[in-house]
Write a protein that binds this DNA or RNA. Structure first.
Lengths: 212, 212
DNA sequence: GCTATATTTGAACGTACGTTCAAATATAGC
DNA sequence: GCTATATTTGAACGTACGTTCAAATATAGC
């Protein structure tokens, strides 16, 4: 299909443009006219290839969530039952963070889209739960193996706080840059990764080790 | 002006309706027609009282941010320089969390609006930084007093993770309810409060105590 | 190379959007 | 109670939206 390798296929071009624009302005802040203009294709083509604007949005999410969830599940499965909490957290957040850092603009924009829908009630069950709950459930199961005496609620709430820290990182709003006077950079995910795993591990230990 | 106490003034009614709808669908997902219909006022009135749709949005944010920031700043100022990290975090997140829990629908919806704009690059400097950075700066200053040997970057990144956990809590998407099979409830902020302060305190201690 | 199918084109569909406006009405100050 | 101002009404403005469609073109299978 891609005989001419200098140009991606129409569906790919549409997905790429939609991803970039959704990352900046959200689902309702972007029109099909903006997307097709950026992609350099006719207005009717998103509806032809994806059925509707909503279908395009779902396709943008699913294109990378499939890849991502495989990586994250493998990372979790690669760990023994005696793995430390740091390793578990690393397996859960690492693949996503690395993709955002080294995966190019597409992956970075994808993470920003996910951050926005993760905080919007509108997409919770339809997209967030549908796409990302399977890995979350496995992660929580492994946490409970690691902390057998932890109360169920403490595990879920710890996971909730982890999710928040992760989401804020993906959002890449530049607020931390502004606030710190450019001492910290939201785009420097290696700096983040270095600190996120210890920070969250300490939180999990405090809440789930059973010393409550 | 409010001679008839059974009904709020037109600007108030518009702000209330806008707040509720923005919480559900975001700025671009809500039209002035939806807002005025819910408020029971004419279409032209938001523009008369607030200049434009954007002016209305800013008014929605500022109405409660002023109240909130006073409470949070007072809570921080009430603490001595020897206050524990738990007290500092409590002062920063407590007022907001309590308003969301006991402040009625308006405050709950407000927190959901803030959660959405906190993860959108579009509103970062214009709204988030402008409204909420002063308190953040004071909080960070107090953290550095408490942890004098902490590296500057570690303090900012810890704050960033705190912000993420707080934001995800405000968002009230219901994902944790779904994921936990209704064991945890995102609307039960007393359950959250009980766990959020210890979780985040442990994170700050791990990162900022200087044992790096 | 013919033929059935997939894709692209360009234009139009009806609807909803934020904003503006003059006229009507309500309010406040004296 | 009159008068200046503030607010509300109801309609219309021009523009952009997602979607649909028939016709044109490109592609794939034989």
């Amino acid at each position: 299909m891609n005989k001419k390798t200098d140009k991606a296929s129409t569906p790919q071009r549409i997905l790429d443009s939609a991803e970039a624009l959704f990352a900046e302005s959200g689902y309702d802040g972007v029109s099909l006219r903006m997307i097709t203009k950026l992609a350099g294709v006719e207005l009717a083509l998103p509806n032809y290839h994806f059925g509707s604007k909503l279908g395009l949005f779902r396709a943008v999410i699913q294109r990378r969530s499939v890849i991502l969830n495989n990586e994250r599940m493998e990372a979790l499965n690669a760990l023994s039952d005696k793995a430390e909490i740091e390793d578990l957290i690393e397996a859960f957040i690492g693949p996503f963070l690395r993709r955002s850092l080294f995966g190019g603009e597409g992956w970075r924009d994808y993470a920003r889209v996910v951050a926005q829908i993760a905080n919007s009630p509108r997409w919770t069950s339809e997209i967030m739960s549908a796409e990302f709950d399977p890995v979350a459930i496995e992660f929580i199961r492994r946490i409970r193996v690691r902390f057998p005496v932890a109360k169920t609620e403490d595990v879920y709430w710890s996971f909730h706080f982890l999710l928040g820290a992760m989401t804020m990182t993906f959002a890449q709003t530049g607020r931390i840059d502004l606030l710190s006077g450019d001492i910290c950079h939201g785009s420097d995910l290696s700096e983040i990764h270095l600190r996120m795993v210890p920070f969250l591990s300490a939180g999990f230990c405090r809440l789930c080790k059973g010393s409550t």
